[in-house]
Simulated scan of single mutants.
Amino acid sequence: MDYQFKAGSIPLLVSMPHVGTDIPDDVAAAMTPAAVDKQDTDWHLVRLYEFLGEMGASTLSARWSRYVIDLNRPPENTNLYPGQDTTGLCPVDTFHREPLYREGHTPSEAEVQRRLAAYWKPYHDQLRAELDRLLALHGRVVLWDAHSIASVVPRFFEGKLPDLNFGTADGKSCAQGLSDAIVARALAQDQFSVAVNGRFKGGHITRHYGQPANNVHAIQLEMCQSTYMDEDAPYGYREDRAQQVQGVLKQMTQAAAAWGRA
């Protein structure tokens, strides 16, 4: 199976497109040791969001590493942040500009198209099908796209990121009432810093599927990994930190689900 999926009963689907760590043998054969480290993975998010099962939310998480193909990039590989440095649909380097492929083994356009069909499309087909199912059941649905990133990545931004970064495509991917309800829970605490539509405005999943006029409302949360884990290899989960941020995550996802039911 190309992903892990669990159907829920409430109008909330949580997508985790960058948690995958598997790399097919034929792809790995062309890669460098930097690729094997998979440092740019959204580590441990499935564990961090484990409370979603008790809530009754639907969950969809990736099997394949983002180094194989990036599920949160558009299939035509357009830059979602024009003028800014980003990694593409089929990344060729890490966030620290380390090459992912041995010299002469960068994927061809034909190989990129093969990976789109083999690894990208199944995830998006399931995502679309579940949104449609929940929409039919509830009349509207909330899509929460869950991400995490190292708190300091000089390639993309200066200094340390805020702890909780929300993206709604500058208000286009969801109703204002939904984002207000979620962000209010984030701002009610003073342990974690918060940004809305700052450096992260939402990737392809948030922008493509978030269609408020069609009752599908999408929001992305990009979390600093320092809130719940060690950011250096071997990227260990920190239960002491995770318990604190989990409380905030629960309140925010509960707010999203309640808004979806209203």
Rank of each mutant, 00 (worst) to 15 (best):
Q251N: 14
G20I: 05
P82A: 09
P74C: 09
R207S: 08
R199W: 15
A262P: 00
Q251A: 15
Q4F: 11
L134F: 00
Y235I: 05
A35F: 05
L100F: 09
G260Q: 01
S179E: 14
V68R: 05
E222Y: 10
G260E: 02
N214G: 00
V153Y: 02
R114G: 06
G171F: 11
R185A: 12
Q244L: 15
A186Y: 10
G56Y: 01
D190Y: 06
V112D: 06
Q176W: 14
A150W: 05
K250H: 12
D132C: 00
L48I: 10
V141T: 12
P99I: 05
A186T: 07
I10L: 05
G167F: 05
P107T: 06
D37K: 09
D232T: 09
Q211F: 02
H147R: 05
M229S: 07
L52R: 01
S151P: 04
D37T: 09
N165V: 11
A181N: 08
D125M: 04
M55V: 06
Y209P: 06
L80I: 11
L137K: 00
G236E: 14
T106Q: 12
V92I: 14
K38M: 08
I149N: 04
V27N: 06
E109R: 07
A258Q: 09
Y235C: 10
L127N: 01
D40T: 05
W43P: 01
I182P: 06
E222N: 08
T78W: 14
N215D: 08
S108K: 04
Q126R: 14
S15V: 06
N77A: 15
R133T: 01
A118P: 00
Q84G: 03
R185S: 12
A188Q: 12
T168R: 11
V92Y: 04
L187A: 09
I219H: 10
E239T: 15
V112C: 14
N214E: 12
A233Y: 09
Y81F: 13
P17G: 13
R102D: 04
V194R: 07
L178Q: 07
T168E: 14
Q191Y: 12
F51Q: 03
Q39A: 13
Q176I: 14
Y101T: 04
A213R: 11
V153Q: 11
N214H: 08
V19T: 12
G56F: 01
D232C: 04
H105C: 12
E111H: 05
T78P: 00
A218N: 09
F200P: 05
I182D: 10
Q191H: 14
T94Q: 04
R241A: 12
K160F: 03
F192M: 06
P212A: 14
Y81H: 13
R63G: 02
L89M: 07
L12T: 00
G167M: 11
M31T: 03
A110Q: 11
T87A: 13
E54P: 00
Q225F: 07
G171T: 14
K38N: 15
Q189C: 10
T59D: 03
V68T: 04
P154W: 03
